[in-house]
Structures are given as C-alpha cells and as structure tokens.
C-alpha cells in the first residue's frame, strides 16, 4: 500500500479557545497540500499536531503504508508520525554558534541509515539551496534568508516522506521562492507528501489548497441550546429578546 496521510474531523484547542474543528483531508504519495487561512486560523497548530508535537482536541490522524515491514498497517500513533515527518517551524532549529556544515552534519548523524542513504550528501544539499560557498561560516553571521535556506537544506540531508513546512519562504527572496517551489515539486515527485502553510503561489498541477475554517463562531461553541436569561429567570430557549 502506498503511503497515505489522512486527517479526519481534527479539532484543536489552545487554552479555552477552540481554534478550529472539523478539518479533514487526505494526502497520498506525490500530494502537495497548501494550507491557507487568515492569521490565527490555526495553520501552525495543524502542522504541529500532524507532526506529533501537540495533542489534538478531537479527530484522528492516520498514516497508512508508513512501515515497510507491514505495508498494510494503518497507524494512528504519534510516535510513527514523528519518525515519518520533517517539520520546519518558524524557528530554524540551527545553532547560531556552529557552522552551516556542522549543523547539517549533526542532523544527518541523527537520521537512521536508510533515511541517510535516501537523503543527499551535505555538500549536495548545500549546493541545492545555494549555500555551498558559505558552508564554513557560523549560522549566526548569515542573513535571515540564508539561515532559512540552511534550515531547508536540513530536509534534504535525511529523507523523510512527509514534509510539514510552516511558512518555508519566510525571509526568502524571489529567486529562493522559486527554489522552494522546485524543492517541493521534486519531493512530491519522489513519492513524498508535502503539507505547507505558505502564501507562495506554487506552480504545481497537483497542489491542492486546504482552507482553514477559521475560528468557530460563538453559537457553534455553545451548542444549539442557547438559553436567554431575562431578569435572572430562564425565559425559555430560542429567540433573542
């Protein structure tokens, strides 16, 4: 069975507020899902839940075909998703004191042998994001855009089938935007799945948009039975005074 990520009826809560609910989609090999929505509509939260870093309030996330040993198994455990996903958040996950090369070598050393074999060598990954000349500089002296590109190179040095990208093009220039587009397209073409929250107009035929529903309206949260209080007494359900 090919790899398939399916999300059903997902809801997320931060503190007392429900951020979104009833988010469902499914993505098979080669799928590119672009998550869109207003600020605060829960795009980052959705990606973090899929990555297994946050708990969902309701709903289920299933991964089918993630385990090569048991190709027919459908897995709902967060541990499985953590191992299958590359997560690129707002923060780059790079140590500013260490060189670009050392940072990538560190993450590559953490990967399992098959994912290292599948991934690119560090030099090749740096070539891909155009940072080969800066490999021996500490990340801290790079510009914000260059740091972002170094973070993108991290996705290439170890292969993981599912990419979760949160604003991957933040701080990037137009040429680098095109590079991210190419990276996403190539990853999808090699039987990967990309879930990206971005405003980048991707020139990909298979890209689908997933619009976040936005915060649920008040009456949705309270349920159907709205009771109006009139002078301290229950005045019966329904109409507003």
């Amino acid at each position: 069975m090919p790899l398939c990520l399916s999300v059903e009826g997902l809801a997320a809560r931060r503190g007392d507020t429900l951020i979104f609910r009833d988010v469902s989609f499914s993505a098979g090999e080669g799928a590119v899902v672009i998550v869109t929505g207003a600020n605060g509509s829960g795009k980052s939260t959705l990606l973090r839940i899929v990555a297994g870093l946050l708990r969902a309030e309701a709903g289920s996330i299933r991964v089918a075909g993630g385990d090569p040993q048991r190709p027919d198994a459908v897995d709902t455990r967060t541990e499985t998703r953590r191992d299958l996903c590359h997560y690129l958040g707002h923060r780059n996950g790079l140590k500013t004191e260490l060189t670009v090369f050392d940072n990538l070598a560190f993450w590559r050393s953490f990967a399992t042998a098959p994912s290292r074999r599948h991934g690119l060598e560090i030099e090749a990954a740096l070539e891909e994001v155009g940072l080969l000349a800066l490999a021996d500089l500490p990340v801290g002296v790079l510009s914000a855009g260059q740091q972002r590109r170094a973070a993108l190179a991290r996705l290439l040095v170890a292969w993981r089938p599912i990419w979760l990208l949160d604003e991957p093009t933040a701080a990037l220039d137009a040429a680098s935007d095109a590079m991210v587009s190419r990276m996403i397209a190539r990853h999808a073409a090699s039987a990967g799945i990309v879930l990206a929250a971005t405003h980048l107009p991707l020139d990909l035929p298979q890209a689908r948009a997933l619009a976040m529903p936005g915060p649920p309206r008040r009456e949705d949260v309270g349920g159907d039975d709205v009771v109006w209080l009139d002078a301290g007494q229950v005045d019966g359900p329904g109409a507003a005074p």
Binding site: A51, G52, D83, G89, R91, N92, G93, F110
Partner: peptide, 14 residues
C-alpha cells in the same frame, strides 16, 4: 527550545 532544536530532537527515532 528557543532556536527550535527541541521540536526536532523530539521527532527523532532515538
């Protein structure tokens, strides 16, 4: 946690 490494460390097979 501040530079996002913690998220990634939590997503390792180790």
């Amino acid at each position: 946690r501040e530079d996002g490494t913690l998220d990634l460390l939590m997503m390792q097979e180790t």
